[in-house]
Design a binder for these strands. Structure first.
Lengths: 351, 351
DNA sequence: TTGAAAGCGGTACCAT
DNA sequence: ATGGTACCGCTTTCAA
């Protein structure tokens, strides 16, 4: 079923069908209706490939993210969801590309074979060869995250430095003096992941400013690593009373480690960090955290990209977000005394 | 940069370039190398649209899942990840389509505009108009889940009936007599979602078989709903000692509800269900559950689809999985006495 | 207001 | 072993 068939049945030329459907040229109401009737009857829809070939646009955007091995974090997945739905609202489809670096086959296909009109990149590194490549060839793209020199480029990012610092100040204000930092995996930190790097930076500086005693840790993206990490923290400095984490996937393990060590949250130990909101609410006690507005960020990234696609020489735009800390139940003043016996939980040495 | 340009520079015809690159016709080693050199020099890659138009294949598969509002469950997201990576291994790209029903624009585009060679569908309903449509038009697809009449079609599914029943038997064996069932949201159950329907069925029958007293609940896909649901459970029958859940997203809320009600897991209350493994391990205590092998299922679905695409008249194949219950820490014999004082936790009325 | 025809960039058949 | 060319299905310019 192609446009020629429709033309024949409607007794008009192929171009007229094309124009009737696209509205790019006036068509007499009479023939327009005749064509529409045939189209409806046969359920005709133009071939995406043919159209893409003819006018050089695929109406598809690429979503690039590192292959996560087995596990994506909740945050990454929230991005995928929100980008997909925001794109659907513009009638764009989303093509997934699990590519951590420039040279990944999937990334090459996306660009080289012109499968997409533009791309959204997740998990940005401070020096990101994928972005360098895209910028070099002038390919329309928007980053979720900032490189080391984000000026003049398109992105929507989180102010990880400020967020981590805010967590430190929150804990310091509560009287905590010895706190730990639980980062993403060491491999990612070393690769220069923006959130890991800037987060660590913000944490370290704020802690120095407040004169706190700190230790920083890298931690695998899973519960087991979180548990192990927490054991190291308490082993290295049993007097630690709080931690800040960027590692959402490890959160469950951190909590379990605290429970196993007999530290009650938040009475004996405070936990906070930067985590997507709805995941912060699944743990008990609910996590006091700077909520990553993944939904909003995905939508903004799509808005930006669509704008850029519609106006090829529009000046670069971006959004830097710094959501406030949502106070929930995982932080408390250091050295709180139990308010009632019921709070006296998880303490192994109990008469 | 197109194939004509390459041909010109290499001093051969366009067809020779095409054959040299595809290997579908012998080309003298000499010219092949000459062509390859030009290709490498110019970084030529054939246009996906043109190729798709010419040979009728896009080398893309569609992944169809319901628009989830804001929240995808961990399981859904594991599917997306595993399907994408499995597809990448076959050099297929994945196009996302957030479509719950046949009539969604995105679904229409996928099929009508022939954007993909085949599709994988998630969140199957017992009567699924999307699948009916696909089958009717003979479009290659594989379902993750089974309809009411799965014979002769392509799918990879979970034996939800058996899984829910296994959970019941596990609890009954531990001595539990009054148990609750926490299902997916009512709207999904009524829409005929396979897991919700078959799971409920399996639970109900197994409970009857064991002569248990049960209540069944629908519950929203989020922590707050889980908390509310648990409160209802204990309100409706305070003597309830265990629950089975299919609702992964509510799990955190269920746990919190139990803690708030002063029920210690697993001493006072056992929790089990059907949940993706890595999410079962993030909660404390870790959930004893039938682990949904999302990673494996995604891979199998892609394998099946690729096989179907390569052999258009291969007979339908499928995989029905019934993973065993992984014993972790959230279930225990009913009425267990604390082994040591440390276990004496979360009980409000404590001297 | 409409039609004819030249691309878009490949593939593959038919020749040589 | 290689070249010429029709064709995939749609868009758009040029003409009428």
């Amino acid at each position: 079923m192609n446009i020629g068939e429709i033309a024949k049945r409607a007794g008009v030329s192929r171009s007229t069908v094309s124009y009737a459907l696209s509205g790019k040229r006036p068509v007499s109401e009479d023939t327009r209706q005749r064509i529409q009737r045939v189209v409806d009857e046969l359920g005709y829809q133009p071939s995406a490939s043919a159209r893409a070939l003819a006018n050089g646009r695929t109406n598809t955007i690429g979503l690039v993210f590192p292959p996560a091995g087995n596990h994506y974090t909740g945050m990454q997945l929230d991005f995928i969801g929100s980008v997909t739905e925001a794109a659907a609202a513009y009638d764009y489809d989303v093509l997934l590309s699990p590519s951590g670096v420039d040279s990944d086959r999937s990334f090459q296909r996306l660009l080289g074979e012109r499968r997409v009109d533009g791309a959204i990149l997740m998990e940005i590194r401070l020096e990101d060869d994928r972005l360098d490549h895209l910028t070099a060839v002038g390919f329309p793209s928007v980053a979720i995250g900032r490189t080391a020199r984000p000026e003049g480029s398109w992105w929507v990012g989180l102010d990880h430095t400020a967020l981590a610092a805010a967590c430190v100040h929150h804990l310091a204000d509560l009287g905590h003096r010895r706190i730990a930092f639980v980062n993403r995996p060491e491999q990612l930190l070393r690769a220069g992941y923006e959130s890991a790097q800037r987060g660590l930076d913000g944490f370290t500086k704020a802690a120095a400013e407040r004169g706190l005693t700190v230790r920083t840790y890298c931690c695998g993206d899973d519960a087991a690593s979180g548990l192990a990490c927490l054991e190291r923290i308490l082993h290295d400095d049993p007097a630690t009373t709080a931690l800040v984490t960027l590692n959402e996937a490890a959160l469950g393990g951190l909590y379990r480690g605290l429970a196993q060590a007999g530290r009650h949250v938040p009475r004996d130990f405070s936990v906070t960090g930067v985590v997507a909101g709805r995941w912060a609410e699944t743990v008990t006690p609910q996590l006091t955290a700077a909520d990553v507005p993944a939904e909003q960020m995905g939508r903004l990234a799509v808005d930006l990209l669509v704008e850029r696609l519609d106006h090829p020489d529009a000046p670069a735009r971006n959004h830097l977000l710094a959501p406030p800390i949502s106070l929930r139940a995982s932080t408390a003043p250091v050295g709180t005394t139990p308010a009632d016996p019921a709070a006296d939980l998880l303490v192994p040495t109990h008469p």
